[in-house]
Nucleic acid binder design. Structure first.
Lengths: 245, 245
DNA sequence: GTTCGTTACGAACGTCGTTCGTTACGAACA
DNA sequence: TGTTCGTAACGAACGACGTTCGTAACGAAC
């Protein structure tokens, strides 16, 4: 990259070759930054999304990015909202109207959200804590609320349920992408399971009777099955637990 | 604390003043690193836990830490397990025996875990994805499994429930500490709520009917209430959702 | 008293996020 | 047409990061 830092700037440049000499250079914009950052994220992971790397992809310098984005965290928040935009949202009944298919729709929505977020490395981690308020985050929240309303759930319970569902989506997505990362890093999925199995095998049955007795069960089951079960637990639990319980 | 870096090492040191000249210097150890790291974590947050800073607290150089710890991530994993050790664990019935108080105990355990983890900044974030296998993490898992067994839940369901509960604990803890961080950063909790309220106030009722209609409800309720409700949802949902659905 | 393996550590490498002062541009105006 | 001027763009630099390397200091063993 940077050439030798020795020459401090030629006082009489032979050619005043500005970068603008290059003809068709797309204008910078926040959207362009997000696209570049997302591409790097998918290719090399969250920590590879550095300001320098994004700038390089856009054929410019890192300093130029700060015109469109306050800092790296803001850029990542924008990337997160862009990813949320990939989630297909159901059309939802109007306020006050029941919606019979709410359960199937909500199940699919949560599932899709986890899958989509999980497919983009650990980007979901940026949402843990920073209540996201991007347009796509709001649209997702609106859809979830609509489906819960269609189920006839009252306002206070719906508010709690929205938070819980959002929390579960982001957490499950982070976990899912963490697994995928590990599988891609060299160790196969099987070797990861084997390592876990070995950890349990080493445990003393006196200290950890339940863990040892469940050794086989703990490492069984695919991630998809666990995801699906978790969603059912959430839905069943929400229906069974009115606020002020 | 390094002195001025100007002199590159005197060829004939007037005093061969080694750091060992200092008399009572506690010996380094992994435990000492973890203690120092935890103190910095609590005082200044996760990102302040740098190798240099930990070394400084131990009156040594950053390079010395790598004798006891492979890298920063491993140190953070150790810190995480240390924090898990603060969680009071219930004594649990033997395998096969029912345990009538399982629900109250499990509720308290989950609540305590979230509170303890949440009290140590965003340390819980290091556990999202990296299935923790430290001694305290195993003990916590054993306790949860024991309580679930006391409830008479079958093996496959218990395995799924353990994962789900762990996921919820870590996610809820991260969120809780994120709130606390924000409150400590200057903006009070009220101003954070006010900002959120304003965000909702700006929304068009045509685009986000449910969000707008629930504006008041969404910002109501304390974090503790939300936590408690989430735990009930989990417990009710687990009971209502046997594996193989 | 000398050797030897281990622990400790200063210095350095490459990278990061971010800021600063300056340059180059294109539209507005004379 | 010629000039001005706000702003986008950028190279260089700052301070800090994780980590590695070669060397120095130590305690134990002989």
């Amino acid at each position: 990259m940077a050439k030798s830092p020795g020459e401090p700037r030629p006082s009489t440049p032979a050619t005043p070759v500005s970068r603008r000499t290059r003809p068709a250079k797309a204008a910078l914009s926040a959207d362009a930054l997000v696209s570049a950052a997302l591409a790097i994220l998918d290719a090399d992971g969250l920590e590879a999304v550095t300001m320098r790397r994004v700038a390089q992809a856009l054929d410019t310098g890192a300093a130029s990015l700060y015109v469109y984005v306050a800092n790296r965290d803001e850029l990542l928040a924008l990337v997160y909202d862009r990813v949320l935009g990939e989630i297909a949202l159901p059309t939802v009944a109007a306020v006050g109207e029941p919606f019979p298919h709410w359960r199937a729709e909500l199940r699919t929505l949560i599932r899709t959200a986890i899958t989509v977020l999980g497919a983009h490395r650990k980007i979901a981690g940026v949402a843990l804590g920073d209540v996201p308020t991007g347009p796509n985050a709001l649209a997702l929240a609106e859809a979830i609320l609509g489906l819960l309303a269609g189920a006839g759930i009252d306002d206070p319970t719906r508010s709690l349920a929205l938070d819980l569902i959002n929390l579960h989506i982001t957490a499950a997505a982070v976990e899912e992408s963490a697994y995928a990362d590990k599988a891609g890093e060299g160790q196969s999925e099987e070797s990861a399971v084997a390592a876990m199995d070995e950890t349990f095998g080493r445990l003393s049955a006196a200290d950890y009777p339940h863990l040892v007795s469940m050794r086989d069960t703990l490492t069984a089951g695919s991630g998809d099955e666990r995801d699906a079960w978790g969603i059912e637990v959430l839905l069943n639990g929400i229906l069974a637990t009115p606020a002020h319980g």
